[in-house]
């Protein structure tokens, strides 16, 4: 067994265990952390497959940005696990049957092994081969049309998200900084002249305890 094979099996085993833990563990924070581990092992597997650029992007984007956001959300939301698991046993039989059926169908197809033989054993590239450069050429030259359409899809997602959620609330406490800077003393402060020697009314205050006596 070569070093690469050992590395592949090691990282694959970690990946499978971590992925299983993501769905089975009860604590959502731990579940998110196991997802980080799963991403990380997947990145390592990709490196053994010579896809260095994708591996680094996976770590940077998913582990670095997406999962951190995810953890924030998980920590801020009060997730009721009991409620999420309610009905699990009720839906388990039908869900299980459908899942088993799908697995059986796909296995039946895959059993025929329809992929050409050279798909499984690609020849490794040399050291001078640049994965990143190749990827850039594919995306920005070969598939530039698809790339631009994907960009428009993201733009539509932004427009839709903003248009559907932003609404003018009638009584929000919005402050206009320009107005605040322009404010003069007269707008805020009212000076009232009061005589300093006003006589104090010393007449006795009426007793409020009349109710208590009757009760």
């Amino acid at each position: 067994m070569t070093f690469f094979e050992i590395a592949f099996y090691f990282f694959s085993a970690v990946l499978v265990i971590a992925a299983t833990m993501v769905v089975t563990i009860r604590n959502p924070v731990k579940s998110a952390l196991f997802l980080v581990l799963a991403f990380f092992s997947a990145a390592c597997v990709w490196i053994t497959l010579e896809a260095e650029f994708l591996a680094i992007v996976l770590v940077l984007v998913y582990v670095g940005a997406v999962m951190v956001l995810f953890l924030f959300v998980v920590m801020m939301l009060d997730i009721d696990l009991a409620e999420m698991r309610a009905g699990f046993t009720r839906y388990l039989p039908i869900g299980g049957i459908i899942a088993a059926l799908l697995v059986a169908e796909i296995a039946l197809v895959m059993h025929q092994s329809f992929l050409p033989a050279d798909y499984l054993n690609p020849t490794p590239q040399g050291v001078e081969y640049s994965n990143t450069r190749e990827l850039g050429e594919q995306i920005y030259t070969h598939y530039v049309y698809a790339f631009e359409i994907a960009a428009f899809i993201l733009l539509v997602a932004i427009i839709a998200a903003i248009a559907l959620t932003m609404r003018r609330r009638p009584n929000n406490k919005y402050i206009n900084p320009g107005e605040q800077v322009k404010v003069k003393r007269e707008d805020r402060l009212r000076i009232v002249k009061m005589p300093s020697d006003k006589p104090i009314d010393l007449s006795p205050v009426e007793s409020p305890s009349s109710n208590e006596e009757t009760s």
């Binding site: 598939y143 049309y145 698809a146 359409i149 994907a150 428009f152 899809i153 539509v156 997602a157 427009i159 839709a160 248009a163 559907l164």
Partner: peptide
Amino acid sequence: HLLSLYLGLELMSLCLYA
């Protein structure tokens, strides 16, 4: 191309949902 076919379909549908 299957890629442009799928991307066009998604662009159209996403706008319709919104």
